[in-house]
Design a protein around this nucleic acid. Structure first.
Length: 520
DNA sequence: CTGGGGATGGGGCCC
DNA sequence: TGGGCCCCATCCCCA
């Protein structure tokens, strides 16, 4: 028995040793395979980056060739990338979006292009504007991504009209486009100029604070930035060139009213976006993150089309950095509007979401668009400028800034409702997204607007600053006091068209008609 | 008791 | 940011 026990003990020991060795071997195999797998993944990623870089270089080259072909005179464009093409540089560590023209609406103007390298602050984005032919139903906007440069604070100007604007104006009908991007300081200026028209779009990404705003006081069109808005798009209406300093400040050497200016590209094919209502968006998903999307444009007078002049997207969230924003652009009805300024800015943290109403647009009518990506600062910005109707330049030539600002050309992407300011569109679109960023500290109530929250909080404080001079009754709201005053005055401005009965409130009349005259 | 109307409070929304 | 209007819900009064 003892021998038997010893034998079993030895067997158990051997089994344990074998088991341990087997486990160790399995672990080793797993580790080896894992290492190989990771190596393969890394190699694939490197290959992807290399291919992407090559693609970007090809795009750059094509764009440059287009420009060179159409602008025989002194072209200086994208010196940085020219160097890259010569092998002098590389795009790593960030992303660039290039604005490039396409079709007949490309850099075909006989204006030189200059690139202001700025002062070493590296923009992480190069914008690609790709305008479709007039016949194209969907103008394309192509956003390229590349590995960005190291310095996130580079500013660069791309101007396709280097001449002195004053002389350029004298050189009409010469067509000019100039694009200035200053994303290093969170400003991006797009300047598109045709004939006497100038477009300057300035993106001021406000996440760095108001000090970085080009106009800290007011947003474009004289509107203050929407609460929580992290960028401040601006138009500069000036025929003078806009330069970007190395420190990122945008210098409008013209000194004209910086409030508004608009592109006057004249491609009729780009004038209208066949944008349909996007009310079927998955609001739940859309509301996961702070977002703002608006379209700048207008409904044509017949209501048959929605002309999108601008789309601005601000997105936040922990989402994959693969957001493609495209839109439906179609030939359309300019209805006297002679420009299409389509701009889209996207700012995120290191990650960028992939959902937006624009996404839906893109899906409905895909265009070759690559994605923007994050720069070293973790911000993503891509801008687009679509050239608009070239034939209608003059219609916008003399439009004053104030009149433009009064127009409700910023359209809700959900309901097409027009607003005068993009910030207002952002606030309005919270209705559709369900976003209520203002929460009461006293209760669970949440509100879309800060003013509504403030008004609500009087419920908790009991503050009733408005008192009736007739009966000492007090109210927390002025409109309620005004309503109450009708009790004393007997004012009943709303009369039933069926029975003549009068009511002090419209809603009373409506209820009355529903109850009494519903069969009529 | 019931229904219509008035009064009030509150939120939504736009200017 | 405040003003103003709208809508809705609720309570109350009264025929």
């Amino acid at each position: 028995m003892d021998n038997c026990m010893v034998f079993h003990t030895q067997i158990a020991s051997i089994m344990e040793v074998l088991e341990n060795s087997a486990v160790a071997e399995i672990c080793k195999l797993v580790d080896d395979d894992y290492a190989v797998f990771r190596l393969e993944i890394t190699q694939s990623q490197k290959e992807n980056r290399t291919l992407r870089r090559k693609l970007q270089l090809l795009e750059l080259k094509v764009a440059r060739e287009r420009v060179l072909a159409s602008r025989p005179s002194s072209v200086k464009i994208l010196d940085r990338y020219r160097g890259m093409e010569r092998g002098e540089g590389h795009l790593t560590g960030g992303h660039r979006s290039f604005v490039k023209p396409a079709g007949h609406n490309t850099w075909n103007d006989d204006q030189p292009i200059t690139v202001d390298e700025g002062s070493g602050t590296s923009t992480q984005h190069v914008i690609v504007i790709e305008s479709a032919d007039a016949e194209a139903a969907c103008p394309e906007v192509k956003l390229e991504r590349s590995e960005g440069e190291e310095d996130p604070r580079h500013s660069r100007d791309i101007q396709t009209g280097v001449e002195d604007p004053t002389t350029a104006a004298a050189a009409q009908p010469r067509t000019r486009r100039s694009i200035t991007e200053v994303s290093g300081t969170l400003n991006a200026v797009l300047k598109s100029e045709t004939d006497t028209k100038t477009l300057t779009v300035t993106h001021s990404l406000l996440h760095t604070g108001p000090d970085h705003r080009s106009d800290p006081g007011l947003g474009r069109l004289g509107c203050p930035p929407a609460p929580g808005s992290d960028y401040l798009p601006e138009f500069h209406q000036s025929q003078r060139p806009v330069h970007s300093r190395g420190d990122g400040d945008t210098l409008d050497t013209g000194g004209d009213d910086p409030a508004c200016s608009y592109t006057t590209e004249k491609d009729p094919g780009n004038m209208l976006l066949g944008l349909e209502r996007q009310t079927e968006l998955a609001i739940g998903d859309w509301n996961q993150y702070s977002s703002s999307v608006y379209t700048e444009g207008y409904l044509d007078k017949k209501g048959e089309g929605l002309v999108i002049n601008e789309v601005t997207v601000k997105l936040e969230g922990d989402v994959p950095p693969t957001w493609n924003a495209d839109s439906h652009l179609g030939d359309g009805h300019s209805q006297g509007r002679d420009f299409l300024d389509y701009r889209e800015s996207l700012e995120t943290n290191p990650n960028v979401l992939t959902h937006s109403p624009l996404h839906t647009l893109r899906d409905r009518n895909p265009v070759p668009t690559s994605m923007g990506s994050s720069d070293s600062d973790g911000h993503v910005l891509f801008d687009r400028v679509l050239n608009s109707n070239r034939d209608k330049t003059q219609a916008w030539g003399g439009v004053a800034t104030s009149s433009i600002c009064k127009e409700k050309r910023f359209l809700c992407i959900f309901c097409n409702k027009g607003f005068s300011c993009p910030q207002k569109v952002e606030i309005h679109q919270r209705i559709h997204t369900g976003e209520k960023r203002f929460s009461c500290t006293q209760c669970h109530m949440r509100f879309t607007e800060a003013g509504t929250l403030k008004r609500h909080q009087r419920v908790h404080t009991g503050e009733k600053p408005y008192s009736c001079p007739q009966c000492e009754k007090r109210f927390s709201r002025q409109d309620k006091l005004k309503m109450h005053l009708k009790v004393h005055t007997g004012e009943r401005p709303f009369a039933c068209t069926h029975c003549g009965k009068r009511f002090s409130e419209r809603s009373y009349l409506r209820i009355h008609q529903e109850k009494t005259h519903s069969t009529l």
